[in-house]
Amino acid sequence: MRIVICDDEKSICTSLENIINRFMEENKIKCETDILFSGEELGRYMKENEDIDVLFLDIQLPDRSGVEIGAAIREKLENEKIMIIYISSHTQYALSLFRNRPFDFLVKPVRETEIRQVLERVLKVMGRQNDSFSYQNEKITYRIPYKNILYFRSEGRKIIIVTVSGIKSFYGKLNLIAKQVPENVFLRIHKSYLINFDFVAEYAYEEIKMVNGEHLTVSKVNRVEVRRKILSRRREADND
């Protein structure tokens, strides 16, 4: 696991790093933590290291704002995997921050209990995306990790899998796939769509916008159930 802390205040960085290392040691998780002090450093770092899992990002960096950096990660790099946790001395957040789909917000001075709670939720999210979906096509078995699948779509007898790296297809039934995949990772919104919660950009009552810009319809019969499942999943994420 790779965690990056990007903040111009050295004391915050050191304190965060210590708490993270302690937490990972207690949970016996191998983790690499790197500290950066500016947006430019972060940009250079990301060119060399693509596998960042968590980014603690100060909203007010001296050279660039956390909003711009977040937007660049989501839109230019099209990276939805990095869990961005914004840190700020303010409690008021601009709407533009929310468009970057941050994992959480922390207010300085950040308390150890708050960081631990965030890290626990991070581990939970990473845990459920570790498994893979397997299917057969022309007698060959393929495996795609759940964390790479945006959604399944059924077109007649064919199943289309929209992934981060492209589109795959095979012959199958969406009902069977829905029973196969975990309920807390995938959501049935329509008889033709089974979506991955973590690739949703925006929820609405009648349609869902995915991170790749596609708008998928939520069928009338599913709307109440979809709503219930979104809330249940959120409660589960908060350990409720």
Binding site: F98, R101, E202, Y203, A204, L231, R234, D238
Partner: peptide
């Protein structure tokens, strides 16, 4: 009290 907004959804606990 917890209140947030994520992905177009308002959540209150």
């Amino acid at each position: 009290l917890q209140m947030d907004m994520k992905r177009g959804v308002f959540y209150l606990k």
